[in-house]
Every structure is written in C-alpha cells, then in structure tokens.
C-alpha cells in the first residue's frame, strides 16, 4: 500500500507516522509538502499530529487553506482513505471533511497520558481488525480535544454508526471520569458517513511497537492495510 503523510508547517508527528507505516509495517510511504497542488497516487493519506501553523487562531483553522487541501478533498470524494490523527483530526474538522469542532480541554491544560478507548464500530477500513467492545490502550497528547457537535449531527453520528472510539475506564466502561477532555459522549474518534475518512485524537503511531511498551495502535494500521488489499 502507498501512504502519503501530509506535512503542514508545524506538523510534528509526520516523522512518527512515516516511521510506523514505512519501517514497522513495511509499506510504501512518502511525505507530501502542504504547498503541493497535485497529489501523486496514494491509497491512504495521513494528516499527522502537531501544531500546524502553530495552532494560531484555532487548531487546524489555517491548515485548511493550504494548497494541498484542495487535492485532499478531491482524494476524499474519490473514496481514498484518509486518517487524521490529533491535529490532523482538527484539520479535517475545520475543512468540514468531518463534522463537529474541537474546544479546549475541560481542564484548560495540555494532557499527555495513556488512556483506554472502547471500539464502537468494526465495519470501517480503520477498525476492521477489531471487534465492537474491544478495549485499546492509547496515549493522547493535546490541548484541544473537547469534541463538540450540534445535537442533530450528534444524533446522525450515532444513527449512522460514525462514532468509532469512546474514552473508557480500565474496565471498558464509558464513564464521565474516563473522559479526559470533556468531549461529548466521550467521543475520541469518528468517521464520515461514507466511512473512508477517520479522525481520532489518540495517537496509534505512538503505540505500535513492543519496545514502546504497547502495541494496541497496530489495530488501526493493520486494518487500513487489510482494507487496502481488498480495495485492490
């Protein structure tokens, strides 16, 4: 499979994402500079974490004006797979490729820590390796992960099975205490209705190697690679 990792000015998980797909999962991978106006042919695009444009104005708000985003939109409407992680998720929200918005964490502090996610949907290209109810341990590292969306859209997200991950406790229960940032209904990751675009706040690329003490993030990349094989 061929991955493209978009590099915005201020992206800082671009190297990590590239490392994981290229060196851990042995897939083709290239960096894509945000000023490019043409996309080569890729099977999956990753919008990595970081602070695109310094998070100035609002996380992701300026990234949406990068020249490459026009091509990303076209890629999306052609059915290409897009994974937005953390700041990448925020860019996808600002670009309206995914519904909703991010507010500052409830604590008004940056939070970096491991926590648990409950897998809510397994019939997407990003989660097909798992089963509904699976519990995954993954780190978050963000200041703005407090997911918000209007009631009507929230209901649509639920009805269309677009909520893929929720924050949960170590027993797998989705509780208020397990919610690190105040996100609506503990939402940690969602996909679009067509199920080819996923955004998530936790960082699967940080937990896909045994030396890092946690490999739960592999599920995401393995699912994508499986889906890519089917696509072909």
């Amino acid at each position: 499979m061929k991955f493209g990792v978009i590099v915005f000015p201020g992206s800082n998980c671009d190297h990590d994402c590239y490392h994981v797909v290229k060196h851990v999962f042995k897939q083709d991978a290239e960096f894509v500079w945000h000023k490019e106006s043409r996309l080569a042919s890729y099977d999956c695009l990753i919008l990595p974490g970081g602070f695109s444009y310094g998070d100035y104005l609002r996380p992701g708000a300026i990234g949406k004006f990068s020249p490459i985003m026009k091509e990303v939109r076209r890629f999306a409407s052609d059915g290409g797979l897009i994974l937005g992680i953390c700041n990448g998720f925020q860019v996808l929200l600002e670009t309206d490729l995914l519904p909703g918005a991010m507010m500052r964490n409830r604590s008004l502090k940056f939070i970096c820590k491991d926590l648990y996610l409950r897998l809510e949907e397994d019939d997407t290209p990003f989660t097909n390796r798992g089963r509904v109810g699976d519990m995954l341990k993954m780190p978050i590292a963000h200041f703005d992960g407090n997911y918000f969306v209007d009631d009507k859209t929230l209901q649509e997200l639920e009805e269309n099975h677009q909520i893929l991950f929720r924050y949960c406790d170590h027993n797998g229960d989705v509780t208020t205490d397990a919610n690190p940032n105040g996100a609506m209904r503990n939402i940690a990751g969602i996909c679009n209705r067509e199920r080819n675009i996923m955004g998530m706040m936790p960082h699967p690329e940080r937990c896909s190697e045994s030396i890092l003490g946690n490999e739960d993030g592999r599920l995401i990349f393995e699912s994508i690679i499986d889906a890519g094989v089917v696509l072909r």
Binding site: V20, C112, A141, R206, L212
Partner: peptide, 24 residues
Amino acid sequence: YRQYDHMVRTNTVVLPGSDAAVIR
C-alpha cells in the same frame, strides 16, 4: 509532566516517573 508531550518522536521507552528517562 502530564502537561508535557513526553512521547512525540516515538522514542520514549521509559516515560517520566522512573529514576531516569530512556529513549531509543
């Protein structure tokens, strides 16, 4: 240290909280 991103670059093998931090 929860306010510091201590994992970016995916090298941190021993996170804050032990005698010394270890990166690969």
